[in-house]
Design a protein around this nucleic acid. Sequence first.
DNA 1: GTTTGTATCAAACATCTGTTTGAATGGCAA
DNA 2: TTGCCATTCAAACAGATGTTTGATACAAAC
Lengths: 218, 218
Amino acid sequence: MENETTETRGRILEAAAVVFAEHGYAATTIRMICGRAQVNLAAVNYHFGNKERLYREVLLYARSCAYDRYPPTYGLADGAAPEQRLHAFIRSFLLRTSCDERNLGFGTLVMRELVEPTTALDMLIDEGIRIMFGQLVDIVRPLLGEQVEEELVLACARSIISQCLFYLFSRPVIRRMAPEQKFNHEDVEMITGQIMFFSMHALNGISESRCRRERPHA
Amino acid sequence: MENETTETRGRILEAAAVVFAEHGYAATTIRMICGRAQVNLAAVNYHFGNKERLYREVLLYARSCAYDRYPPTYGLADGAAPEQRLHAFIRSFLLRTSCDERNLGFGTLVMRELVEPTTALDMLIDEGIRIMFGQLVDIVRPLLGEQVEEELVLACARSIISQCLFYLFSRPVIRRMAPEQKFNHEDVEMITGQIMFFSMHALNGISESRCRRERPHA
DNA sequence: GTTTGTATCAAACATCTGTTTGAATGGCAA
DNA sequence: TTGCCATTCAAACAGATGTTTGATACAAAC
């Protein structure tokens, strides 16, 4: 055909991302996807083999879309200070997993995969989550001062990433308890600020208390 | 029959909680539940009407079991200090949502409901989540010092509850990245300690920085 | 004993599911 | 043209799903 990947294949991929994100793997039917993509029912099995393989390709496709738009260094200058690097990490994470249509529901797809793991979760962990968390750990380490145990760095990194995940997982609740929250770019800036505010106070406090322990009554 | 609620009904309720927690609403079949409960296929529709009404009753049943075992004041003496109250809140939250079989998968059920809301989510929010969060806010407020804006209290409460939710949502990932973590009672104590460590440093830092702003150069 | 109402059961129901099939289409090289 | 190949399509497939049905069992009430 015209392209190496046919147009039909692309339409299925985009439609499937939206439908899988909205309903989850089990509740999504191939008929929903084909209806939205306006292609024949058999097209999914022709182009992707079966539903599960389509789902795996959707995960990879949505992830590459979201990461292309919002890489972990989004809006960050070279040689920035650790605090700025943390700010950029949190902000790009929130943007990448936000409901922005052009992310193709990446955040929601991963969220669902975490809650109801399929065989695709290992793929996501090995090729994405592990790297992402490692980057955060490298940002947090210098913020905790010198000679800090790695276990403490990991615990702090978990505390920080958990605050980012909160606004991913609790979106349905927040939407009902605080409908004014819209999760647009403006809200992301504010949420980034709140997470930074809380976390930097924690990191600075931990760092200081450890200095005092090293050199008491100084 | 012998009891006001028949034995069959109870068996279905317990079996359904486990199966719904394990597979989610859509992927759970009535045949799975009845097979596990060793009752006839028609028993679900006889005792509960249909699958959705059974699911709602399961949510309420699992919640009451989990809250009976681990109330928000679990292990807390009267008149305890705010910091101890926060410790008890975090610990009971983690225990209540842990994988302990006698919680009937309450944590997992709520987690799934958050990710894929049904009409039952409103019920959970109005009768549970809102109250739980309000209790946390009341614990956090005195820890931030006097005359602090309510919006800041809410943001800090969100930062704290998000760390607790992390160990609920990310369990599948943690299980694969750090298999030594078992989420038993011992691990809960350790995780509680880590969340307290990070959060108290944050709260103290925020509280102090605001005092300094009130009385500069004091 | 007869009736009544609750509870259980095997079987069937209509519908929806993912997948397959075989024919039709259309572009392209020989 | 002819043959070839990738692609699309309507139709059908077998199996699973939630739900219903009508028969049966059984204890209590009359």
